[in-house]
């Protein structure tokens, strides 16, 4: 399972960049529709995730790469989610000790 020298394709790179540009325009444009609260964040982040996916898979060429490289990337995101998730288990469920504090 050699990971390494995968020739990049000029066409694929250019198309990726175009897709990224289009998504950027969409994410800015969507803002003027004023989607109601939690959904605007969800839309913005979903678009960002798709963009990041394109960069990782095509520019960084992870789709042709060793699975350990993919695994390390997945782990970093997973552990970031653990950090945020378990911390929010506290911050979202605190009972104010001093009323009104």
């Amino acid at each position: 399972m050699s990971s390494g020298h995968h020739a990049l394709s000029f066409k694929v790179l250019i198309s990726t960049a175009i897709a990224l540009a289009v998504l950027t325009v969409i994410t800015v444009a969507v803002r003027s529709i004023h989607i109601p609260s939690p959904f605007n964040i969800i839309v913005a982040i979903s678009i960002a995730v798709v963009k990041a996916y394109l960069v990782v898979m095509y520019f960084m060429n992870l789709r042709n790469d060793s699975r350990f490289n993919l695994l390390s990337f997945v782990f970093s995101v997973l552990f970031l989610l653990i950090l945020v998730g378990l911390t929010m288990l506290d911050t979202m469920f605190r009972v104010p000790i001093v009323p009104g504090f």
Binding site: S2, S3, G4, D65, S66, F68, N69, S72, F73, F75, S76, V77, F79, L80, L83, V84, T87, M88, T91, M92
Partner: peptide
């Protein structure tokens, strides 16, 4: 292969390094 793998592991540390800030962002936003 080794150099590339090493770089990916370094990127993991970068993601978690920024991750602390993202966590602070999310918690304060919530």
């Amino acid at each position: 292969d080794a150099a590339k793998f090493g770089m990916w592991i370094f990127l993991v540390t970068e993601i978690l390094f920024f991750g602390g800030l993202f966590a602070a962002y999310i918690i304060y936003r919530a």
